[in-house]
Design a protein around this nucleic acid. Structure first.
Lengths: 344, 344
DNA sequence: CTGTTAGCGCTTTCAA
DNA sequence: TTGAAAGCGCTAACAG
């Protein structure tokens, strides 16, 4: 006689249902349902509960999610839409979101893409949506959404969709003040695409920090990168460094932009930070290994993710969410790309 | 009398069901179902079909997914598990996967995490799984999976889970041959974590390319990075460059490792590529903006994603999948980090 | 060409 | 403390 492992996983046969467990435990399916969902306010004789639990375990029962969803009108999944996966910022946000979602019994699933595409496909598969993808038209957007509870993650759009934000304006100001404190008087800005709310807020922070310090600000010291990537940063910085007199410092609105700016500076035969200082926005492990290591400002992105889910859970429960600003302060990560300006 | 916009989106009231559409169109729900799911082999009088379509549109009907899933036992979602979102390689794979999935009417949702965590939560929410997360124990893994159709993406584990792979071994060989052709005779390797299948295959490619060329290979020229990140690459390269005689070229098993190696080299006061040449594995836009721009090998990752879905769809349909190797060749992206060795 | 019928597997009153 | 019954919204035979 061959040994049959006791815990053998049953082959892909017909799956075991609530009814099978009920049969095996000698009770009604409804009892099994109540026991297994841990219905607190239900009195079940301990021995009955034990029998049910034992049967469920023995039969390796897995509730059918579609049936449960059909009945309860809840999927217990939260969707997150991001414009592109390969961005460490989104990954940090997702981590926070995931943690908070898990604590509430939800799972987080992420979809790449713009909202208009993915939306129809998501309806009915998620209980709520975190939208981190860029959008320019909030109301168009709302109508697409229909009644899916949604919160915008670090972007505020016209319209009534609640947003959770980090203080990008303050973060930008931290960067600029650092440069000013180092003694720079010609601080330029590689701005992000101005159709993105994040980029606008960072630009505002740059402008207001300069103003608050009474420092000089010239319109030509701001150049907008049409997208958040290295090539765009390279191009913008090249323009900036061609100015006369040349800016001695550049604050880039994003890490990829900063990397492009760094490359541009060196390709112009200038050195960082001796000739020009550079500060980037959003931190990543990579920053420490650039040449020179890049000074950046780190935003509380994991907390952003957590709070966004927090807010979304409220919406799912029918509470009307309001905008929230993550209260943790931005943090300057000082490395080597910013130093005092050359003694002109 | 107030104007009521005709296309007003109904408030979050009770949603419209198949029955409502049927009522409005004056037909039976089953007819609506058939018309809307585009059942080809069904004859419906054109005018009936038109009435149904019109009613559905007017009422803004959205099928209830849970009900459909309960009935059909299909979710039409493919899950993808990745170890971390912030890796451009996964993002490329996901793009390919998404495209192929969409063509078959599926959507792709990605989950971060290791398989053991996420799995129980995924069962019943996806029809199949693409696993790109590292695993060391394939059989343990299979038992967790139960009967969820799965394909491993660019990792082969012992056990019977089908895998779709790119030819990492050939890719590594391309890199090494490039270095050899440049005239290097002391080519070292920063290997990835050897519990990862990708890392093992790349190491194999390094070894066999050296052997095929009759070039010298020394055990101390290979150092393993315990993880695929910049810090580990930095450390490994530092060790390598302390060797006597010093290797004149380094092939790094991954882009992040290569970036760390680049930084290490410079921090040792050596220059790239004058003193030492570096070639990385997997390409990213960033590579062109490093100092110097990094020569890399680009693998057909989008195709990997497509083929993985292809294979998974087969499994979902009950066909037993076999391992497949993406046939597109690796491509060397020549930039500036590799050059002939210094005239010793 | 269209309607009838019978569930899919679960949860949740309500009744015993 | 447990069981009975109804139904979530859809699809897919089968019948007409």
């Amino acid at each position: 006689m061959a040994d049959v492992p006791e815990e053998a996983v049953p082959a892909a046969g017909p799956s075991v249902k609530l009814r099978d467990v009920a049969l095996a435990a000698g009770v009604d399916p409804s009892v099994v349902s109540r026991v297994l969902s841990g219905d607190r306010r239900l009195s079940v004789r301990p021995e009955t509960r034990a029998r049910v639990l034992e049967a469920a375990a023995r039969l390796n029962y897995r509730p059918n999610r579609a049936a449960r969803t059909l009945k309860t009108a809840r999927t217990m999944v939260i969707g997150m839409v991001v414009p592109d996966l390969a961005n460490t910022a989104y990954s940090l946000i997702a981590q926070g979101a995931e943690r908070r979602a898990a604590a509430a019994g939800y799972i987080l699933m992420v979809m790449r893409g713009s909202v208009p595409d993915g939306l129809e496909e998501l309806r009915g598969r998620v209980d709520g949506l975190l939208v981190a993808a860029a959008t320019s038209d909030g109301s168009y957007f709302r109508s697409l959404l229909g009644d899916i509870p949604t919160v915008l993650v670090n972007r505020k759009e016209p319209g009534d969709i609640p947003a959770v934000l980090v203080d990008d304006e303050a973060g930008a100001a931290v960067a600029v003040r650092h440069l000013l404190a180092l003694g720079h008087s010609r601080v330029a800005h590689v701005a992000g695409p101005q159709n993105a709310d994040t980029a606008r807020r960072r630009l505002r922070g740059y402008v207001s920090a300069l103003a608050a310090a009474g420092a000089e600000a010239r319109p030509e010291w701001v150049v907008e990168a049409p997208v958040y990537d290295e090539a765009a940063g390279h191009l913008a910085a090249t323009t900036l460094l061609g100015l006369e007199p040349r800016p001695t410092a550049i604050f880039a609105a994003n890490i990829r932009l900063a990397i492009g700016a760094l490359a541009a500076t060196r390709r112009l035969g200038l050195s960082v930070p001796e000739d020009v200082s550079i500060v980037g926005f959003d931190d990543t492990p990579l920053a420490a290994f650039l040449e020179p290591p890049l000074t950046t400002v780190r935003m509380p992105l994991a907390e952003l993710g957590e709070l966004a889910v927090e807010s979304l859970l409220g919406e799912i429960e029918g509470r009307r969410a309001t905008d929230v600003l993550v209260s943790l302060p931005p943090e300057l990560v000082v490395r080597a790309s910013a130093a005092p300006p050359p003694a002109a």
